[in-house]
Amino acid sequence: MNTWNVRIGINPLSWMNDDLPALGGDTPLETALQEGAEIGYAGFELGNKFPKEPAALKAKLAQYGLACVSGWYSGQLAEDTVDHEIERCATHMEKLRFNGCRVVVYGEVAGSIQGRMDTPLAKRPQFADDAQWKAYAQRLNAFGEHLKAQYGITLAYHHHMGAYVESPQDVDRLMALTAPDCVSLLFDTGHAYFGGAGNPVELLQKHASRVAHVHCKDVRADVIRQARNNGWSFLDGVLNGTFTVPGDGALDYDTLLGTLHASGYEGWLVVEAEQDPAVAPSYAYAKKGYETLRRIVDRIDAATADAQLVAMEQGAR
């Protein structure tokens, strides 16, 4: 019987936060890797504590039987040239390629306020007109084409709070202006909701055919309302608990994963929830996120197997 070809991974943010080093800053990388493997995760996305050299990274993950899922790349194409981006990315992309990664998490950081504690989300950068949007899309297309040709890696664009592409309307526009064979979408459930998608399933249904990677956050809707109403920065929201792991918030993960399955998505489901580990203990929350996704994937597999069995029985009559 066929099973859904997805793997469940995790980002080290459950243990340590690169943007807010005070959150889990003293936690050794080895603690995260050991606990993640023990819980059942198949791989990790990268963070600042991972080895930078490709072979050393591969060896470190192999100690725990883990795969390299992908890694964030801080892109600047909103304000810079494709040639400069190609030069800047080489070391990172070669590390991902060496470690078997099929996608890169492209996060636009030019003009972004996502890492500024004192800047409210309302002051995020925005393109002034259609011409700027189109020029940006063209640069993304060229860069994505280069990544596929040079490294065999797909550009998975991460819509993100505090950046140029934040709202559902921004995602719609980006997908309309970019070429499917050059630019794919990283669908982040938490950022989709925080960005204005009251029901992230609707945004996912629009763009499921473009999804190449998935970040699985849950949200605390009341905290997100506070963040919007009180003019918080993105990091203020993180500290106050806007995000949590799947199964601990307001999102309907059964429908989200069912939508992905129906669309033919194959790849990683990555638990990623920026939280303070002193408030949300790393192991317990990482385990809850894994068990939530595992339960739903197993249910989908069982339903698929049942449907195949019925079809076989009917065909044999």
Score class of each variant (00 low, 15 high):
239 L>S: 03
47 G>Q: 10
153 I>E: 04
86 I>L: 15
144 G>D: 05
85 E>T: 15
47 G>T: 02
3 T>P: 00
269 L>E: 07
3 T>M: 14
46 L>A: 09
293 L>G: 08
185 L>C: 10
230 N>H: 07
235 L>G: 02
277 P>L: 04
144 G>T: 11
211 V>G: 12
256 L>E: 03
144 G>N: 04
185 L>V: 08
262 A>H: 11
168 P>V: 05
275 Q>K: 03
61 L>F: 11
277 P>E: 13
189 T>E: 01
228 R>L: 09
286 A>K: 00
208 A>M: 06
207 H>Q: 11
190 G>L: 00
299 R>S: 12
58 K>F: 00
71 G>M: 05
111 G>H: 11
33 L>N: 13
266 E>K: 14
255 T>S: 12
123 K>R: 12
231 G>H: 03
10 I>Y: 01
161 M>W: 03
107 G>C: 12
165 V>I: 15
276 D>Q: 08
145 E>T: 12
144 G>Y: 03
31 T>E: 15
15 W>S: 13
220 R>A: 06
28 P>S: 07
266 E>H: 13
112 S>T: 15
75 G>Y: 01
171 V>K: 01
67 A>L: 11
179 A>G: 00
230 N>C: 08
6 V>N: 14
281 P>N: 09
18 D>L: 02
178 T>F: 02
69 V>E: 09
22 A>W: 02
8 I>V: 13
65 G>L: 10
120 P>Y: 04
25 G>C: 15
254 D>F: 11
136 Y>G: 09
75 G>E: 01
146 H>Q: 13
8 I>E: 07
217 K>R: 11
133 W>F: 07
20 L>Q: 15
40 G>D: 08
188 D>G: 03
2 N>M: 14
164 Y>L: 09
55 A>F: 01
152 G>P: 06
132 Q>C: 04
96 L>H: 06
260 L>A: 13
13 L>P: 00
170 D>W: 07
316 A>C: 09
276 D>C: 06
293 L>F: 04
309 L>H: 08
111 G>V: 11
37 A>C: 12
192 A>I: 01
109 V>Q: 06
312 M>I: 13
51 P>F: 07
168 P>A: 10
12 P>I: 12
19 D>L: 14
202 E>C: 01
160 H>K: 08
11 N>K: 00
294 R>L: 05
16 M>A: 15
83 D>W: 05
60 K>T: 07
30 E>Y: 06
133 W>S: 11
292 T>G: 02
299 R>I: 00
119 T>I: 14
274 E>C: 00
258 G>K: 13
142 A>G: 10
93 M>R: 01
58 K>L: 05
83 D>A: 15
169 Q>L: 12
200 P>T: 04
106 Y>H: 10
110 A>P: 10
186 L>E: 11
68 C>A: 09
19 D>W: 15
246 P>D: 10
136 Y>W: 13
155 L>H: 06
122 A>L: 04
169 Q>W: 11
190 G>Q: 03
306 D>M: 10
196 G>R: 07
243 F>I: 02
274 E>S: 01
95 K>M: 14
256 L>S: 03
73 Y>S: 01
169 Q>V: 04
294 R>G: 00
23 L>N: 02
35 E>P: 02
240 N>W: 02
6 V>L: 14
199 N>Q: 06
233 S>D: 04
78 A>N: 08
302 A>V: 06
63 Q>Y: 02
68 C>N: 07
201 V>P: 03
211 V>A: 13
65 G>M: 06
256 L>D: 05
93 M>L: 15
214 V>H: 11
83 D>P: 02
87 E>F: 05
